[in-house]
Design a binder for these strands. Structure first.
Length: 112
DNA sequence: ACAGTGACTAATA
DNA sequence: GTATTAGCCACTG
């Protein structure tokens, strides 16, 4: 670890993910774009791993561009992510968010 | 310092 | 329409 030099980027991810309304989801690319690291969606995913390990971040509200729960494997249980989403009203089918486009929450627009 | 890996995305075949 | 390649940036060995 770099002693938290990149906290700026990570912290931004934490803030945005925390601000995601219940029952809504967003994509890594959207967060990356909002942070200015457009094209580096992988960093958002990496940040979420750190965030999940460091703070209580609802990382389950963040999925990939197709709405698939790619990161569920990193949770305590692979089913925790889907369960949490369904608990908030998000329908998940075959590890994929239903009506993802409707539930999609764009920080660059909603949070503007 | 180099190479491999990864919670991604878009383009190409 | 599915599969593969390439670009992306940070972390680990």
């Amino acid at each position: 670890m770099a002693k938290g030099n990149d906290e700026n980027f990570f912290k931004n991810v934490y803030e945005v993910v925390k601000l995601i309304p219940a029952g809504r989801v967003t994509s890594y690319g959207a967060i990356a774009s909002y942070l200015g690291s457009k094209g580096s969606a992988r960093m958002v995913g990496w940040a979420l791993i750190a965030s999940h390990a460091k703070s209580n971040i609802p990382a389950y509200r963040v999925v990939n561009r197709t709405g698939m729960l790619t990161g569920k494997q990193h949770f305590e249980s692979p089913d925790a992510m889907q369960a949490s989403l369904e608990r908030e009203g998000v329908r998940v089918e075959n590890d994929k968010v239903v009506d993802f486009e409707k539930l999609f929450w764009n920080p660059a627009k909603e949070l503007l």
